[in-house]
Every structure is written in C-alpha cells, then in structure tokens.
Design a protein around this nucleic acid. Structure first.
Lengths: 177, 177
DNA sequence: CAAACTGTCCAGAAAAAAATGAACAAACCG
DNA sequence: CGGTTTGTTCATTTTTTTCTGGACAGTTTG
C-alpha cells in the first residue's frame, strides 16, 4: 500500500482507523454542485462526485484515492473517469515515481460543451430530422382534407428543428471565452 | 361505454376484438420523436407518448382515448397530462356534449421553453450560485498558499455560472418567433 | 519468469425512477 | 338523494439505471 501523501490540510486523510474517509466542507460543496450539474445532463451521480472532487483538488489524484475518498467501487470510478475523459472534462498527468494514472480536472468549459453537443445533442437532432422527413412522406398518402392539418403541424416541427439546429453553433461561440 | 367516434382513418380505432389498439405509422413516428425529446429533458417516456399522439391528432382527445391507444394506465396518463399542462405544452378544450376534458397539443415552443427554464434550469443556477458563495467563504480560512489554487478555480466557476445565466434570456429571445 | 500492481469489463445486486391500479373525491345526472 | 362518470393521488409493483466486486488482461518489477 502506498503512503498517503496528500498535502491539502483541508482535505483530511483517512482517519487512523479503517473507517470512512471524510471530505472537507469545500469538497462537499463542490461535489454537490457538480452532482447537480451532471445529473442535469443526464449522467450518473458518481460522475459528478469524481469531477467535483478533482475540481477542488490542488494535486492530481490517482483512481485509488478517488475511490477511497468517495467510497466508490473500482468499477464506478473506472467507468466514470472513462466518461469524463471522453468528454475532455478530465485528463491524466504524469507524476514522478508513480506508475498509476493521476487525474486532474480540465477547466475549459467550451471543449466539454462541444463534445457533449457532438456526442449527445447532435445525434438527437439528426434522428429527429429523419423522422420528420419520414412523416412528411407518410402524409402524402392522405386525402387532401386530412393532409392539411398534418402538413401544418409538420411545418411547425421543421421550424423547431431548424431553431434547435441553428442554436448549436451559437451556443458554442458563446461558450468560447 | 362511449362510442368510438374518431374520424381520422389513419388513426385506426381498436380492432373488433378487445386486442391492443394499433397506432398509425405517422403516430408512431411522432411518438418516437417526442419520446426522444422528452427524455432528453429528463422526463418519463409516458409524457412523450402523450404529447406525441396529441401532436398529430386532428381532433382533441380525452384521457380515456389516450390511455387506450397508448396502452397506458390511468395513473400515468393523469400524471403525464398534469405535467404537460403545467408546462403549457397541452391544454383542454370544450367538446360539445361530452363531460370529459379533451386535450390538444400546444404548438408554441417558446412558452414551453420558458416554463421549462423557469421550473428546471433557473433553480439549478440559483442553488449553484449559493454553493459558489459558500465555497468562496470557506476558502477564507485557508492559508495563503492553499487559497491561491482554490481561489483561481472558484473564479472560473463563477465565470461558468455567469455564462449560463447570461445565456438564458438569449435563448428565450431566440425561441420567440 | 513469477509475483505484484493497475486498470477494464461485465454479470449480478442494489437503488432509483416510472408505471400500475385501486381507493378516493368531486361533479354530474336522473 | 343513490348511482355513475371523470379524474387525482398514492402505496405497491415493475422497469430501468447505476453500482459493485471479482475475473481478467496488460505492465512492471525483482
């Protein structure tokens, strides 16, 4: 077992006994904050915990420390970090004399947002467009009377879709600081 | 039991037997589309089904019809319609000679978005700000060396928060057509 | 090379979210 | 009124999502 070498006095190391490690108030606030944000984006809370703790950590942390401090299983930590890496929300850095990967939070919001949009939002917009096209095709078989209402509504749908699509680049530009 | 009086030949009524009522292709596309959208917003799929069917229905539909066509329990239908009403995504209209409420979809996107933001997004932003303030307060007790990193990060957090906050009115303006 | 270490993956367990259906309240009807 | 229809609420069940922990593969080390 590796010696506990964290330097942050406000991030208490595990107590003498093998009991649950404690988190500082600052860490708890950060974790809560990011749990909220992450859940809003539809991701599991463990991901928010990981990012929250890394966000306030003054030093890079290896997975083992994250597991210990957050009382989280190896599986969750590994999967969560993988997800965070895939969004560019977290990266690994080299730490001299330690074979393990050490993680630090990335603070560049725009990269995260851009990856999130590319990975989660855009596919939805695309499949939505497909559906709209299919619906437009389907109503061709309707009698004129029926077609009117349906056509009118599909026009609106297309309108929504265009708005959504048009907003994406704008949001990205807005977030680049 | 009330006679089935839907007029849309593309929205087949229940078959002669008591078997599962069928949905037209158009209805299925619409429902799938809105299930996707609604889940993206973190709401249960039943809500998407309800809105999807109402979106393409040429006539107002009572809850009973929605339940039958979607194979959905009374409880889910009632709760889902309540939620949709609360966002202004759906409203009831009077239908002569029928005591039941009849529902139609609202097509005004901006009202829905504004209610969604007010109800879901803004509270998160508010509680986030509270947390940031609390964190800023907590780091006052740190020694100068520790405080630096933390302060730097909190500045970034504030920045993110301001961006999020600033984007809300812009999105609303964008969606008003 | 064997033993120890690090991290991934995935089947099963646990927790969380959503759907069900029956009890209930309210409105209507004769 | 008593009976019926309509819709809401909520305790329970079902479904879905998330977490866990061990098997495993790849590396490093003595």
């Amino acid at each position: 077992m590796r010696a506990q070498t964290e330097l942050d006095s406000h991030a208490p190391a595990a107590p003498a006994s093998g009991a649950a490690p404690t988190l500082s108030e600052l860490e708890i606030e950060a974790i809560d904050l990011f749990i909220g944000l992450i859940k809003l984006l539809g991701m599991p809370k463990s991901v928010g915990e990981l990012y929250g703790l890394l966000f306030v950590s003054p030093t890079p942390l290896p997975m083992e420390t994250l597991m210990d401090r957050l009382n989280m299983s190896k599986g969750s930590a590994s999967q969560g970090l993988k997800l965070l890496r895939s969004f560019g929300a977290v990266k690994t850095v080299y730490v001299a004399g330690d074979r393990r990967d050490h993680y630090v939070a990335e603070f560049d919001l725009s990269r995260f947002a851009s990856n999130f949009i590319k990975g989660e939002l855009q596919p939805h917009l695309d499949s939505g467009l497909e559906r709209i096209k299919r619906m437009e095709h389907l109503i061709q078989q309707f009698t004129p009377g029926e077609r009117d209402t349906a056509e009118n509504r599909l026009v609106r749908l297309r309108h929504w879709h265009e708005k959504g699509q048009a907003m994406v680049p704008w949001i990205l530009k807005f977030l680049v600081s």
